[in-house]
Design a protein around this nucleic acid. Sequence first.
RNA 1: CGGGGCGUAGCGUAGUCCGGUUAUCGCGCAUGGUUUGGGACCAUGAGGUCGCAGGUUCGAAUCCUGCCGCCCCGACCA
Length: 418
Amino acid sequence: MPHNHIIMKYSKAFIHTERTINDKLDATSHKLSIQAGLIQQVSAGLYDFLPLGHKVLSKIESVIREELNAIDCQEISMPIVQPKELWEESGRWNVYGKEMLKFKNRDEREFCFGPTHEEVVIDLVRTKITSYKQFPFTLYQIGRKFRDEMRPKNGLLRGKEFMMKDAYSFHTSNEDLDREYNALRTAYFNIFNRLGLKVIGIPADPGEIGGDGSEEVVAFSKFGEDYFIEENGVATKIEENEVEKYSATHEVYRGIEVGHIFKLGTKYSSAMNFNFVNREGKKEPVIMGCYGIGVSRIVNAILEQNNDEKGIKWPVAVAPYTLSIIPLKYQGSEFEAVALELEKAFEKVGVSTLLDDRDMGMGAKIKDSDLIGVPFKIILGKRFSEAKEFELEFRATGEKKVLVYKGEETVKEILAMI
RNA sequence: CGGGGCGUAGCGUAGUCCGGUUAUCGCGCAUGGUUUGGGACCAUGAGGUCGCAGGUUCGAAUCCUGCCGCCCCGACCA
């Protein structure tokens, strides 16, 4: 029977939490991501995503897709490995730096693991597009990037391999670029809002990627690598060594760069001979924008903003499971039937549920649920056998509600509260 | 790449300064029993190239040399 994995028995789930954590680790988010079994380190800056982490990533990706598709961005997928020739054309093969991991294949041809995809996407589009009539449009992908960071840090916060959403827009005028840039900017704030992240936009230095203007979107966190101040509602990035200077007169904030949008202009199209034919029949370089979101980094940013001493407090939009069902006993007990009944009811309405059927003490099961951050718990205990009473508990607030089980009616009651 | 720290069982650790029986403890795991509302208890058991290589020594987790890996701080990035 096909299974959508909305419903999972804990005993069958590949969920492995840790009671203790390596005391070398620093950032709260890094510790939690390992302790709650979201990720496992393979090597410095390289991580496995375990089922819980992978579910969270997928949910983040879904939110991004929905918001981008809503403004007519179109999803594509490009290869991770890229040939040297494209990078020589843009002039970046010898410029990008040691973060670009280069290698030769069996034919002695040179390639790199893509740290970004401007070259490849231009090569894709320039063969298909010739006329001004075919503009504008925006393509995006969600995939892996590789940057051979000299110092990977804090788990997913700065890995060598990471998940990124990169979008590229194509225009025949600067006005149209401005329009799309603003549309993407708005979409970004919608995305971060839905993900439950507190963020701020900061005008930025376009840096390596080059171009005419750019803005960073930064999620507040004391483990972030960006320092900034705010004045009259405008945030300004400062260097770490300027913190002392400003701290006398301003509040200095720290944050994680979760997004970055750029007006590229014609920098890459000119270099790579990417032109369109205008109304007058003459060639002009295509005007471009590019828009990044650090998808795997967002996991850390959310963790930084949503935790307590018990563990993770996932916003519902990204929680790997929405609900835990925790019976006092399961196999062969009086709780088994009702737990299954609830499970089925929630499956029907698409509420992802983790049924803790393990033969363990109630306390241990509750602690695990809280550590992995499930937003709602249904606790079936003694009072259920006595009076059909159970508890609905809210992870975010710690609030508990005692309810009486009356079948479907009760399921509706729960759905109204979660 | 500079500076600091670390590497002992699946995970977390003691021991290292000052070398000396069979390498410590907790968690987890296995078996049996007792438990069962906020990480239960008892008993028994399995599990180790002490990061790697070389050296000193009667003897090395411990001392010396070299290498590898990991974490944290700085210069760069989503």
